[in-house]
Structures are given as C-alpha cells and as structure tokens.
C-alpha cells in the first residue's frame, strides 16, 4: 500500500499538532450572542407586526435577558483576546472583509439598543418604576416616539449578529469544516430557536406558549434541513471536506454531535413540543432547556471540531 509519512519540526504551542487557538470563550460567546440575537429579532418582528398584545412576553419580557447575554458574551470575548489592552483597536478600524470587524460593530449597535428596549419596558417588570430625573423621562418619551424605528434597527442588527456568528467561522477556508456558507443560516436558525425557547420558558400565557412551541418546531425543522444539506455538501466536495464531515460520521465527534446536538437538542424537544400541541401535559421547562442546551452544544462542537479539520500537504 502506498503510504505517506510527514514529519514536521514545528511544534508551536496552540498550533501543533492540532490547532487549539480558540477555547470555551468563543463558542460560549457565539451561543450567547446568537441567543440574544434570536430574542431581539423575535421581539422586534412581533412589535413591527403589531402583535405586541398577543405576544407580550416575547416583545416585552424576554428581551430583558438580551443585555445580560450580550454583556456576558462580550466578557467571554475579552477573555479570548491575548493582547487585551489593545482591544479598542477594534473600534478605530472598519474592515469590510473581516467578519470579526462586522461583529464588533454590530455589537456596538445592538447592545445599547437592547438596553434601550429594556428601559422602555421597565414598567412591565416593575409596575411602580419611575425614572426619577426629568431628562430620563424626556429620553423615554423620545425613544417611545421612535420605537418602530428602534425595532427595525434591532431586527436588522439582530439578523446581522445571528448570521455573523456563523460567517465568522465559514470565512476560514483553512478549516474545511467551517468553510461552508450554510453555517451562517444554521447559526441564525439555532439562535432563533434558543430565543423562542427563552420565551417558552418565561411566558405564562397558554396561547403564547403554544405559538412559541410551534415556532420552535418549525425552526428545528429548518435546522435539521440545513444540517443534512451541510453534510451533503461536504460529502460531495473535495477530500478535505469529506474528511471534515467524517469527524461527525465515525470520527471523534460522532457521539457528542449526534447525541447532544441532534438527539437531545433537536429531536427530543421537537417530539415533546408535538406532544404539547396535541394536548399532552409536558412541562414547558423540559423542551425549552433542551433546545437552549442543544444550541450551546452545536457551537461548542463546531468550534472544537473545526480546529481539528485541516488541509494536509
């Protein structure tokens, strides 16, 4: 049998024998950012469509999670940087070809917007809330007047943020597993399903819960469709991408991917939600937590497995 033996004298820390430059911080951030994007997109969409009354939790309550998620995500991102004191360089440069630059600027827009959105709904959480100062009240009036514009900004930047978490990875052709444009829509869908699950978790309204169980079901369907297409694309591509797919089809990530992401994160919650819609009693907590967990695991596994996938020469 013809064989090839490659011996390399290079042994750079965090680069060899496998790349392991990105650790828990990046997938954690991708998950938190994606979920916040999902929550904000759903809130903005229902507000713009004038369905605020029917889906009060989704528009007014769930978004309170978003600023927290975004800030935690930013802290995780900061931990990832190795030259931390120079982080501000992100905001003195606009680099259109760099997904990370897009992400940094999108966060710069959507984080304050999410805080403003929450501030406008403080009275929903605390009925006796009062903005003590006059200028704060003026500010509230101002933003209430332009709430629809704010919702549009939130929707558009939410979509950018959700897609960018995937594009960030798919822009790297050096890592064949990441190098598929399906990751953008897949991560957006996964973020939206986590966002829908958050409302499912928080809502006390039966009709709203039903609607969000339905939304989750549809998005899980879309995610499964995208994952199947991702594998079809890989297996029909070059050897390096076939190898990348094989990380999940018999390779070291097979069990974790199929058990945690597909089975526990998508199939089981989908089944439970179908049961709920068919009037069986299912505690809303279970499918919602499973969906959020699956969305988290998807990013972890893709980020770690991607660093194992490479060109051999």
């Amino acid at each position: 049998m013809k064989e090839e033996l490659i011996v390399s004298g290079r042994m750079n820390h965090m680069v060899d024998p496998n790349l392991h430059i990105w650790h828990w911080q990046i997938p954690l951030y991708l998950f938190l950012g994606g979920m916040a994007a999902g929550i904000l997109c759903i809130a903005a969409l229902y507000f713009i469509r004038g369905r605020e009354k029917d889906y009060r939790t989704a528009v007014r309550i769930t978004p309170f999670l978003a600023p927290g998620l975004l800030v935690l995500g930013l802290i995780a991102l900061f931990f990832d940087l190795r030259h931390k004191l120079f982080f501000w360089q992100l905001y003195t440069n606009i680099r259109l070809q760099s997904p990370m630059s897009w992400g940094a600027w999108a966060l710069m827009v959507i984080t304050p917007v999410s805080f403003i959105w929450c501030a406008l709904h403080m009275r929903d959480l605390f009925p006796r809330w009062d903005w003590k100062y006059r200028w704060l009240k003026e500010l509230e009036k101002f933003f209430n007047k332009y709430k629809k514009a704010l919702a549009w900004v939130m929707l558009i930047y939410g979509i950018i943020l959700g897609i960018y978490t995937g594009i960030l990875l798919s822009a790297f052709n050096a890592r064949p597993l990441w190098n598929t444009s399906i990751l953008g829509p897949l991560f957006l869908a996964s973020g939206l399903s986590a966002g829908a699950a958050a409302t499912l978790l928080l809502s006390k309204n039966k009709e709203e819960r039903k609607q969000f169980a339905r939304i989750d079901l549809v998005i899980i369907g879309i995610e499964l469709f995208l994952i199947v297409h991702m594998f079809m694309g890989f297996l029909a591509s070059t050897q390096v991408q076939i190898d990348a797919a094989n990380l999940f089809l018999g390779g070291p990530y097979t069990a974790t991917f199929w058990i945690f992401v597909i089975f526990l994160g998508m199939l089981i919650p989908a089944l439970l939600e179908i049961m709920e819609l068919r009037k069986f009693y299912v505690p809303a907590l279970v499918p919602a937590v499973l969906v959020i967990f699956g969305s988290f695991m998807l990013r972890f596994i893709i980020v770690y497995a991607g660093q194992m996938s490479r060109w051999l020469y």
Binding site: M14, V15, L19, I21, W22, D80, L81, R82, H83, K84, F86, F87, Q89, L90, S98, M100, L168, A171, F172, N173, A174, R175, Q307
Partner: peptide
Amino acid sequence: CIGCGACIAS
C-alpha cells in the same frame, strides 16, 4: 494586534 486568533485559524 488584539490577539483574537482569527489570522491563526485562517
């Protein structure tokens, strides 16, 4: 350079 590691992965 902020040390984000994107270039290393790319």
